[in-house]
């Protein structure tokens, strides 16, 4: 696999790096690579003004790995519309990471901001740190969130994770904030820690699993119990109590909570 790396050397109040993806960079010559533009506020500037650029991209996105080193939270829009290849982010980064992506892998070592994996269709995002609000969610006014792919967050996630989610798999190893899986239509959300207020509110179909503590909404009805659950070929030991809801939406979603 070919590799290009961008090491942040000069800070700015806000940078938008939606152009630094395998899709945009593959086939770039060394010269072109230096002049690839990113947005700094209202100015479009060469990435090399803020990043040390090294390496050589491959002939296709799939054969290209882009590494952003020393990344900081003011760097936004990484991996937007990505369709293949690998994007590695060393450090933390900002909002809309992997937004509307259709393939490939994004790995973030640190924390990420809001709207990560927003309306993503396929591919995988792995976050080692914490994630902000609206993970895997729908964009403002859209009513279809993430439809496929996987997001794994090893830390905690913020509020409204999986809002309007229509497919795919979100796994949170830490805790989830309020309104987890609100308006969820399909797909699976697994939270290994606790979930916040109003988990599964307005859910119509789909599955949410919470291994830690969660307050059940009065609009959810208890259903059966299960000794163990099989999620994408991984066995989770129970016992689990199943709740059906959300009654407010005539929903038929499944909320499993470990007893």
């Amino acid at each position: 696999m070919y590799q290009v790396s961008f090491k942040l050397k000069k800070e700015a109040p806000r940078l938008e790096i939606d152009t630094l993806t395998p899709d945009c960079l593959c086939l770039c010559s060394a010269e072109e690579l230096k002049s690839v533009k990113i947005w700094r506020g209202k100015k479009e500037v060469p990435a090399s003004e803020h990043f040390e650029v090294k390496g050589e991209p491959g002939p296709t996105p799939e054969e290209t790995m882009v590494v952003i080193e020393n990344c900081k939270p003011f760097v936004h829009y990484a991996g937007m519309f990505m369709s293949g290849g690998i994007l590695k982010i060393k450090g933390s980064c900002g909002n809309y990471i992997g937004s509307r992506m259709t393939g490939g892998l994004i790995e973030v070592e640190g924390n990420v901001g809001d709207m990560v994996g927003e309306e993503m269709k396929a591919g995988k995002i792995v976050v080692k740190g914490n994630a902000g609000n609206y993970l895997g969610s729908a964009w403002w006014g859209d009513t279809t969130g993430m439809t496929g792919g996987q997001i794994v967050v090893e830390g905690n996630v913020g509020e409204m994770c999986g809002q309007w989610m229509e497919g795919g798999y979100i796994r949170v190893k830490g805790n989830a904030g309020d309104f987890l899986g609100v308006k969820q239509v399909r797909g699976i959300i697994l939270v290994e820690g606790d979930a916040g207020y109003c988990c599964g509110a307005g859910m119509t179909y789909g599955r949410i699993l919470v291994l830690g503590n969660v307050e059940i909404l009065p609009t959810y009805e208890p259903d059966g119990t299960y000794e163990q659950l099989d999620i994408l070929d991984e066995i989770f030991k129970g016992p689990f109590q199943l709740y059906k809801g959300d009654g407010a939406e005539d929903g038929k979603g499944d909320l499993y909570v470990r007893k």
């Binding site: 059940i216 009065p218 609009t219 959810y220 009805e221 208890p222 959300d246 009654g247 407010a248 939406e249 005539d250």
Partner: peptide, 10 residues
Amino acid sequence: RALLRGKKLQ
């Protein structure tokens, strides 16, 4: 909303 749909609350 659930009551409006005739659901029983828990």
